[in-house]
Structure formats: structure tokens, C-alpha cells
Design a protein around this nucleic acid. Structure first.
Lengths: 262, 262
DNA sequence: AACCTTGTTTCATATTATGAAACTTTTTTC
DNA sequence: GAAAAAAGTTTCATAATATGAAACAAGGTT
């Protein structure tokens, strides 16, 4: 993932560094007491207390009346909603994503590249009681490495060789399942295949039991910044069905590119 | 809405106040230049510049390479995802919400009370191409006053009289449509009806063309903190269909309360 | 009842943020 | 295409702010 202060540039505002540290820690821990929090952050409890008061004052944090523990309010969720509502690629693409989910009756994701990862911007789940397995796996606001997801590989396949190499070198390659690609050569061959077919597959490389089909979407400069995928349990994702769904994916990609006008 | 520094208590950390001011402003404006931003915030451009550098350093802000404008990254969305994934009422209730959306083929929302508002925690939209009208109207992360939504009224109906009065007095009552309730007496009569029937209706009180049916959910202390609703365009929400859907809503409420074990 | 842990407040001090000004770069105007 | 204006960035002395030790308060535990 590798954020934690891009570069090691010193933060020009110390208290900003600290207060966002508190915020991010709270997002990870959930409700927590002052001493435990200050221990985790390696900050004086007096300092953390003051920062918490500030966050409470701004509406980002609440203190549980009964337990005294501090926790995040939904103000961040609210901000997130405002941010997403301004991302116009989502509103432009959503109808087609929904159409695809509707016609194939499977979960469809829409992602955006962010450094070495893909970031999940939108999920459309079909109302199909059988497949609750997939439903929980991925959510808006989460991210995955490019190299081990169908959406990621679809994007990679359209990038220049040196960019691909750079991303590979800066990714933490991890064998998530026995099928995860962990060699650069292997990835290159895979990408060549994707270029040929026009779509990418994730054959249980990320999570056992889940297969995906993805295609990328280029922006007005021809840069592959987005992608979408169909995800389904292996049981419903046979090779025969992949052949069919792949056609839907390719068709949807074409329609979206045309709708975007580039 | 009325946040903006709960009470008028002075923020104990000035730079926190300012840096979150920058963050919130960026969420509203979208990409924006330094001078315009500092003018809006009534802060020296040098100060705003330093705060922006700090936000960039922490990964919350990006600067557009071409235009030089500053904008929020998706880090807030990521935090929001983490927060929501920890709200266990959502995971507990989701299956039943989905089941309801599935059986009635309409959009279902799940909300939580927050002061004088309801806050939208989850939306399940059926894959039904006809009804794109509703789909966009409400989203996770947004909020509405209690008094003018079905979910809000369902919650209010279960509250004590003095609490209802308090909320009414602290709500900004606004005639959103010609059917919006704007009198306290009128609201009280409406709430009495809701108590009798067990469910609440929004008959185009919030938005012309949209009707909703809602029921509230009580927590382990018997406090009505959550609610869910079915929303649909008037065309599909005839009085006859309301009678049918109301039964689904009541049944779902019962199942959820039982599943929550209180 | 004494002791420990957690949470809160105070305050002198040192550190940090501030913003004016200088400077650079980009855009606009004539 | 030169001059002017606007936007963006950097520097630095100074004023203001954040800091954390210490004292205090409130629950909890032995």
C-alpha cells in the first residue's frame, strides 16, 4: 500500500500530522480509551486528549457516554459521499455497469488506478440470494494491487513496458493463493494474452473460489485509468460461461468508451 | 444540519480547525486553485499553501499536474470504507434488507438517527432498468431531517413526546414540496397514525414523484436508532401496492428485531 | 480503605505556526 | 511579443500556539 507520508518529506504542520494520526488510528481500532490510544500513537496522553477535544469540536469524533471511549462519528463518511458524488466518471459509467450486472446477474465492480493499486469506486450487486459469498468480499473504498486482480491486469496490459516494470518493482508481491502470479515473466506473458483477447481474467489468483473477467477503460488521453469486472464464484464461472460473459464485457467496454466520447 | 463546531466552544488546536476547513472546502468545491481557496477560507495564501502541503504529504490531497489545482484524493473514501466496515448493525441487517429489496424489486435504504437527521448507511437498489429515477436520489453518506422522511418519521413515532418536541424545535423546517409537513400539530397527528399502523409513509413530502414506506428498528435498550424504507416512484407506489408492501416492511422489521435478539 | 488506572485540567516554556515580503512562474493584456 | 498582472511558492523574524510535566479527579481493583 505504501502511503504513510509519501516520500519521507517532513510534514510542515506537526499538529496536522498528529491529529490525522489520531483519526486514522481510530478508524482502525474502533472505540478506544485515551491511554491505550496515546500508547499506540506514542504521544503524551495530554496531547492526545487535546487533539481528541479538537476532533470532537469539529464533529469527527464522539465520546461514548457510558464507556468514555472515543470513536469516529460518520462525518468522514459524509465527506466521502460528497467526494464520490463529484467523481463524474462514476455517474457516467454507472448506467452501463448496472446494465451489465443486470444482464449477467453477477456482481460488477468499477475501479480506478491509484499508484500500484486499483481502488474500488463502485459495486453493483445483483439481487440474487444464492451468491452471498462474493457480495461481501470487496467494497467501495478498498484497494488491491494491480498485478493480482482482473481489473488491475486489464489496466496493466494497456500500459507501457517501463511503467509496468516500475509498478511491478514497487508492488509488494505476495502469493495470496496458489494461483497468484509472482513472477515478472509470468505477468508479461499473461498481459500479452490479455492484449490479444481484449479482456483479463482473475482465475482464483486473489481469493480461492472467485473468478473475475475485466476490461479497462481509457480516458481522453488514451490512458487506462479505469476498469470494470464481473465477479462470480467458480461454480458459476465455468470456462464456457467465461466465453459468453467475455463478449458482454467487451461489448460493455465498447459502449462505455463511445459514451465517454474518446 | 448544524455542525460547524458543536456549541461555540473554541477549537483547542487552531491548525486542526484550519486544516479540516481546507479539507471540507475541497470536498465542496472540487479542484481549486490556491488563491481562490484562501479567499474562500479567509486565510493567508501562504498559510493555506502550507496546510495543503501538509495534506499532500499525508496523502489526502493531490495537485493536478496540468492545472496546478488542488483536489482531494480518495484517502477519505478509504477511511470511510474502514469506518463503515466496522459498523456491525449494517452487516447484521444487510441480508434482510437485501431480501426485502429482492422480493419487492424496489430500492431499500437503511438509516441511522444522528441528532435531528437520519443518516443513510446503506442502499440496496434492485437491478430494474425502468426505475433509474429513484436510484440517484439518495446515497450512503447523505442525511435528511427526521420530520420529512418516512424513515425519520418511523423513528420519531417511537420517541418520547419531549424528545420529539426537542427535535422539532431544533429542525430547520422547510417546505420541500407542497406535501411537506410544516406544522407541529400536523406532525403529531401523523406520528399517532404511524404508531397505530406500525409503519410510516412519505407521500412526496421530500421529493415530488417519490413515495416511501418505512419502519424503525430499536436497539437493545429499546431506543429507535435505525430505520429502513422502500422507495419507489408514485407510479409504482399506488395505494393498493402500499398496502401490500407495508406487510413486507412489517414482516422484515419483525425478522430483523428477532435476529438482533432484542 | 489504600492503591492503581484512566481521564481531565492547568500552566510555564519551548516549539511551532504565522503571514508579510520577496521571488518565480504562468497567464493576460495591449 | 513585450509589459503587466495574477497565481503560486519560498523564506524568515516574530508572535502565537502547542507541548507535556505535574497536579488533580474519578472510577476500579485488590
Amino acid at each position: 500500500m505504501a502511503d504513510k507520508n509519501i516520500n519521507d518529506v517532513k510534514n510542515p504542520v506537526q499538529s496536522a500530522e498528529r491529529i490525522f494520526g489520531v483519526l486514522e488510528m481510530l478508524a482502525v481500532t474502533g472505540p478506544i480509551g485515551l491511554v491505550e490510544l496515546s500508547t499506540k500513537l506514542v504521544l503524551h496522553k495530554s496531547t492526545v486528549h487535546r487533539l481528541l477535544l479538537s476532533l470532537i469540536c469539529m464533529g469527527y469524533v464522539n465520546q461514548d457516554e457510558e464507556t468514555g471511549k472515543y470513536m469516529l462519528s460518520f462525518k468522514i463518511v459524509e465527506l466521502s459521499g460528497k467526494i464520490l458524488s463529484k467523481v463524474d466518471i462514476i455517474t457516467k459509467v454507472r448506467p452501463f455497469i448496472e446494465e451489465l450486472a443486470n444482464s449477467c446477474r453477477e456482481t460488477v465492480h468499477f475501479v480506478q488506478r491509484r499508484g500500484t493499486d486499483v481502488f474500488y469506486l463502485e459495486k453493483v450487486a445483483p439481487l440474487n440470494p444464492q451468491e452471498s459469498a462474493i457480495r461481501m468480499a470487496s467494497q467501495v473504498g478498498f484497494s488491491r494491487p494491480l498485478y493480482c486482480s482482473a481489473v488491475g491486469k486489464a489496466i496493466l496490459a494497456e500500459m507501457k513496458d517501463d511503467e509496468i516494470k516500475y509498478i511491478w518493482d514497487n508492488s509488494v508481491v505476495e502469493k495470496k493463493t496458489e494461483k497468484t502470479i509472482t513472477g515478472y515473466q509470468e505477468l508479461q506473458m499473461e498481459l500479452a494474452q490479455i492484449r490479444e483477447k481484449g479482456y483479463a481474467l482473475d482465475n482464483e489468483e486473489n481469493e480461492i473460489g472467485v473468478r473475475c473477467i475485466a476490461a479497462c477503460i481509457k480516458n481522453h488521453n488514451g490512458i487506462p485509468n479505469n476498469a470494470f469486472s464481473i465477479s462470480a464464484p467458480v461454480g458459476r464461472m465455468t470456462d464456457e460461461r467465461i466465453a459468453i460473459l467475455a463478449q458482454d464485457v467487451l461489448k460493455t467496454r465498447m459502449i462505455i468508451q463511445k459514451a465517454l466520447g474518446h
